[in-house]
């Protein structure tokens, strides 16, 4: 069994802020493996213990090599990191295109595991786009996996309905945090991963045309980023209980949270 795991290098969103002049400050934020992807890595590592080969694929900046070491520490054979100046502007579609090229080059794979969503972009698109490009089935939201023979059974929660579905392999499955509890990766465990396990490739090596990844050629482009006013309203209601209760109910309704 051969497994490809998608692991994304992301900035920690709790450390992202806007400078007093309104600029987005992402650079100094610490980076890490996308939380959802840790669950995919953990699952793959468990499958590896029963003989599977696990390859990690990622698209990211050069610093992502460090993150790959962390991803490898879960227990994987090697990692392929595609990068280049174009990464800064790449959209989910471009990411999926490159990941598909990695999957083809390193493949064939029986199973592709990914996170449901990335913490920074939060698009929840890449795994589905990859599946569509590879022409394989795609199931998202896995809370449990059963890989056997030529198919995979996926348990997942859709609203408050729990369903179990089965799709043929090869397939792309994206997972939730309910899937498992990833092991802790200690500093020492990361240091023990040799850098030689991380292979860095560029578009040409993947047989892709760099022109197709120029900002203007992509399907989308982020044209502006602005802060969300996260300051709480701090609106204080005082007075007659009945009155404030009615006022509160009305406000909540207005906010669309009821």
């Amino acid at each position: 069994m051969r497994i490809l795991v998608l692991a994304k290098h992301v900035p920690d969103t709790t450390e992202i802020r806007f400078s007093p002049t309104g600029e987005l400050m992402v650079r100094q934020a610490p980076t890490k493996v996308n939380d959802y992807d840790r669950h995919a890595l953990e699952e793959a590592s468990r499958l590896r213990e029963s003989g599977a080969e696990v390859v990690i694929a990622s698209v990211g900046p050069p610093e992502a090599a460090k993150t790959m070491k962390e991803a490898l520490a879960y227990g994987a054979d090697r990692a392929v990191l595609a990068g280049g100046a174009w990464v800064a502007d790449a959209d989910p579609e471009a990411m999926a295109e490159v990941l598909a090229a990695i999957a083809r080059r390193e493949g064939p794979f029986d199973l592709v595991l990914a996170g449901d969503v990335s913490e920074d972009g939060y698009n929840a698109l890449v795994p589905g786009l990859l599946a569509a490009k590879l022409g394989t089935p795609y199931v998202r939201g896995a809370t449990a996996l059963g890989v056997g023979g030529a198919s995979v059974k996926v348990t997942r929660l859709v609203g408050d309905v729990e369903e179990e579905v089965e799709v043929a392999l090869p397939a792309v499955i994206s997972v939730t945090r309910l899937l498992n509890s990833p092991r802790v990766i200690s500093t020492m465990a990361v240091m023990k991963v040799p850098m030689s396990k991380v292979e860095t490739v560029d578009l040409a090596e993947l047989g892709l045309d760099p022109a197709a990844f120029a900002p203007g050629a992509l399907s989308t482009r982020v044209s502006a980023v602005r802060p969300v006013q996260s300051k709480r309203g701090n609106e204080m209601l005082r007075g007659e209980p009945a009155e404030i209760a009615a006022e509160l109910a009305a406000k909540l309704r207005g906010m669309g949270v009821l």
């Binding site: 900035p11 969103t13 709790t14 992202i16 802020r17 806007f18 987005l24 992402v26 913490e119 920074d120 972009g121 939060y122 203007g216 050629a217 992509l218 399907s219 989308t220 482009r221 982020v222 044209s223 502006a224 980023v225 602005r226 802060p227 969300v228 996260s230």
Partner: peptide, 15 residues
Amino acid sequence: MLYGGSALAEVAIQR
């Protein structure tokens, strides 16, 4: 939204 809700992004469609 981007970055866990701390930022809003404008995404231009190029298709």
